[in-house]
Design a binder for these strands. Structure first.
Length: 515
RNA sequence: GGCUCGGUAGCUCAGCUGGUUAGAGCGUGGGAUUCAUAACCCCAAGGUCGGGAGUUCAAGUCUCCCCCGAGCCA
């Protein structure tokens, strides 16, 4: 069974922002975790490139839509490379193969009688790419989210008969665990209970889209096309653009990770479309929260957007990943606070974790021939640090399974804190001044080094870079997919292996100016 | 307007089915120590748990009303 997970396919209307980076980072941690556990992972991200909004943005910039999409999607690609995101795919909905997949999918939906012609009349927000339900009787209604004027539309469209799936969708969203976090389920439930209405899946007079086969003049509505990108993305390099082939590569998805704003599309429309085409449904949809900055919404008008590229350059991958994953409950909204950001990075990563390794390694080298001391009694499973390590490991495993990055980070940190405490209690530096304590000191240092090794391994999904640097200092190989959990058993550190000269694995963050 | 979710130490939050002196991290103050990245370790201050009423032997924890914030739908 392939573990398929997806980020949203980001709309290329604008350059990448921190929100997309946040989602992608979280997915990366999850993907790494699943790979380490030995799962066969297919990590999908990509770009959604059709629709009127794109067309207009391109026009405004004096570019062809395709040129515009090429440019923006290249920015995404570069950004993910820079962040070292481990995605297996980066699908673009302008990929020619995608068109074939959409056509085949549509044919199935049409064959099940779920496509009807209808008249779509109403106020449309181009920014949302969505019809708004009767916005009062105002003569100049505007979109509540974009605060831009709505456009009146009256056109003949193709509709998807969503209403036929009322009961199935109700059952689906009541399935425990399908919508995560559970707190968001109410919202969707509420929406569905009011009765599902058919929604239009085509537009007329919109050239920048995939033509609907057999319906001259119609192109697919962006969402219909975009969601299917998850399936096109399954195709491997040389595969023919065939729906069944794609599906065989890893459908259904184990989880769609999305922002809470597009939950409805993923938890209602998308499953209904899949049901109609006779395909199986994703196991889970996880809608995470939004980030604010110092208590304020980020936005161009406020001029307070945090550029993910700049953030990466100034602070580094580990710092940003740690802060976002460790401090913000995944699922809830979070606030990016610079002071807290540097406090946490410095305290947790540099002081608690980094320094733990540094001080221990330094002692071991000094007193035990620059190598890992003999474990002696410290190899026993009932050693206090062995027990702390086992507990941390357990928590990390169960937390990451349910995308609770925060709890995983905390548990890892706890182990490092326990090891620092143990070191202070045992005070090997004073013992070394007495006679006949060498064996005890060796055991204590071994235990702490071993705890540090396990901290490093536990960190591998969340902070692969830091993890790797720590393991290097311990002369220990990076974890391998599938053997990670076994690697974390107490006593895996080899006594006698040489320890390189320690240097800080994590530099303190000194942010003198605002980001 | 309807519905949902929040309002707990300066800050970010834990507190499951109601039950001893309400917890953690950060920040702040003090102490101890020297192996280490001015770091680690220990201790302390600090909260009428948004307001009010009620149920109960007992309520952050249940009920009702009100105030504030966020969101979904109208």
């Amino acid at each position: 069974m392939t573990y398929t997970l997806t980020t949203p396919l980001y709309y290329v209307n604008d350059r990448p922002h921190l929100g997309s980076a946040y989602t992608t980072l979280a997915c990366d941690a999850l993907a790494r975790f699943q790979r380490l556990r030995g799962e066969q992972v297919l990590f999908i991200t990509g770009c959604d490139e059709h629709g009127q909004k794109i067309q207009r943005t391109a026009e405004a910039a004096g570019l062809s839509p395709q040129a515009h999409c090429d440019a923006v999607s290249a920015q995404y690609r570069e950004l993910w490379e820079r962040w070292q995101i481990s995605n297996d795919r980066l699908i673009r909905t302008t990929d020619p193969r995608h068109r074939r997949i959409v056509e085949q999918f549509f044919a199935r939906v049409e064959a099940s009688g779920d496509i009807v012609e209808g008249r779509q009349q109403g106020w449309y927000c181009v920014a949302c790419e969505e019809f708004k339900d009767d916005p009062h009787e105002a003569q100049d209604p505007e979109c509540p989210t974009h605060r831009r004027p709505l456009e009146w539309r009256d056109e003949l469209n193709l509709f998807f008969r969503l209403s036929r799936y009322q009961e199935q969708i109700e059952a689906l969203i009541n399935t425990p665990g399908f919508i995560q976090p559970a707190s968001r389920r109410n919202e969707v439930e509420n929406f569905v209970r009011q009765g599902l209405r058919d929604f239009s899946i085509s537009r007329v007079n919109l050239p920048w889209g995939i033509p609907v086969p057999g319906h001259e003049g119609h192109t697919f509505y962006v969402w219909f096309d975009a969601l299917l990108g998850y399936i096109t993305a399954l195709l491997e390099e040389g595969d023919a653009p065939d729906l069944d082939t794609a599906l065989s590569r890893g459908w259904p998805a184990s989880v769609h990770v999305i922002g809470k704003d597009i939950l409805r599309f993923h938890a209602v429309y998308w499953p209904a479309m899949l049901l109609s085409a006779g395909l199986s449904l994703p196991a889970k949809v996880f809608g995470h929260g939004f980030l604010t900055r110092e208590g304020q919404k980020m936005g161009k008008s406020l001029g307070n957007v945090l550029d993910p590229e700049l953030l990466l350059e100034r602070c580094g991958r580990d710092a940003v990943r740690w802060y976002l994953l460790r401090d913000i409950p995944f699922g809830d909204d979070g606030d990016f606070q610079q002071q807290r950001f540097s406090d946490l990075v410095n305290n947790d990563l540099a002081n608690t974790i980094g320094n733990l390794l540094n001080r221990t390694s330094s002692m071991a080298r000094r007193w035990f021939e620059e190598s890992v001391p003999p474990a002696g009694p410290a190899s026993a499973d009932d050693h206090p640090l062995a027990q702390a390590a086992a507990a941390a490991r357990q928590t990390v495993l169960t937390s990451l399974e349910v995308l609770n990055f925060r709890s995983a980070a905390e548990a890892t940190l706890q182990l490092a804190i326990a090891a620092n405490g143990f070191l202070n209690e045992q005070a090997p530096w004073s013992r070394m001044k007495q006679e006949g304590t060498r064996e005890q000191v060796a055991a204590d240092l071994y235990a702490v080094l071993e705890a540090a090794r396990i901290v490093a391994l536990l960190l591998a999904p969340l902070l692969p870079d830091l993890s790797s640097r720590m393991l290097q200092q311990l002369s220990h190989p990076d974890p391998r997919p599938g053997s990670w959990e076994a690697d974390m058993h107490w006593g895996g550190l080899l006594s006698g292996s040489s320890l390189p000269e320690p240097s800080p694995v994590m530099a303190r963050l000194e942010l003198d100016s605002p980001l």
